[in-house]
């Protein structure tokens, strides 16, 4: 099975080196691809300093979804059977990769959930409420049990990649709407418990507004996906 480890990154020069080193130590046989989303720091130099890591530099800032879809297109065209994606900021533990891959035998998409099992992950009440609301929405619309609808730690097989490379993949926040899209194409989505490091809590007016924009856009996106023909 050809497997690719994917890290979308923007301005992660301070974190990505340690993540790449840990991946290299744990999985020396898996190729790694970093998609640099037009970083303005030294992210690309840090990646290029490590041998065997492929780097794709986007010509301009395309957002998390744009960077992810870039990786999907690369993996799909290069004939990979599956990819594992994780964030470059160190929030996701590379040790979880093997757990995700182990579940690929009986699923098309495996999502690492920070809320499954004995979780001590702390999150602001607004975000926690948003996550629960999205989980409820996902279950109500599709019957899927997704406890962590915003998790970026995922593994996708080739069937899922084939859907993710299509046009109109969300450019900004590909989360629950994409999982619902996969479900609409009759792909199996499962969750497994993972440990995640604490992500810095976002505060301030701008971030606050972004949360509301995210919620509105995600609910709209979900309904539009439900109306599209699979």
């Amino acid at each position: 099975m050809k497997i690719l480890i994917v890290l979308p990154a923007r301005n992660e020069a301070g974190n990505i080196g340690a993540v790449l080193d840990r991946i290299a130590a744990l999985y020396p046989d898996y190729p790694v691809l970093v998609v640099d989303d037009a970083s303005i720091d030294e992210t690309a130099s840090v990646v290029l300093a490590r041998s065997g890591v492929n780097l794709i530099r986007l010509p301009f800032w395309m957002g998390y979804g744009g960077a992810l879809q870039m990786a999907y297109k690369y993996a799909y065209r290069q004939g990979y059977d599956a990819i594992v994606q994780l964030d470059a900021d160190g929030q996701h533990d590379p040790a979880s990769i093997q757990d995700l891959l182990a579940q690929m035998q009986n699923a098309d998409v495996v999502v690492g959930s920070r809320f499954l099992g004995s979780s001590d992950y702390r999150m602001s009440s607004v975000r926690r409420f948003g996550c629960r609301l999205l989980s409820f929405l996902g279950k109500w619309l599709t019957g899927m049990e997704i406890t962590d609808p915003t998790s970026g730690l995922q593994a996708l097989n080739r069937n899922a990649l084939g859907i993710a490379v299509q046009d109109h993949y969300p450019m900004d926040y590909p989360d629950l709407d994409v999982l619902i899209l996969m479900h609409r194409f009759r792909l199996k989505v499962v969750e497994i418990p993972v440990r995640m490091a604490q992500s810095p809590d976002k505060t301030g007016m701008h971030e606050g507004l972004q949360v509301w924009y995210y919620a509105f856009k995600m609910i709209l996106s979900i309904f539009v996906m439900m109306l599209r023909k699979a």
Partner: peptide
């Protein structure tokens, strides 16, 4: 959508590699 696809194609064409790709 067209600009995004074009940018992806350009990025794919200019992929940078450092050293040989790891064996699979």
């Amino acid at each position: 959508e067209q600009v995004k696809n074009l940018a992806h194609e350009i990025a794919l064409l200019s992929i940078k590699k450092e050293g040989p790709e790891k064996p699979e």
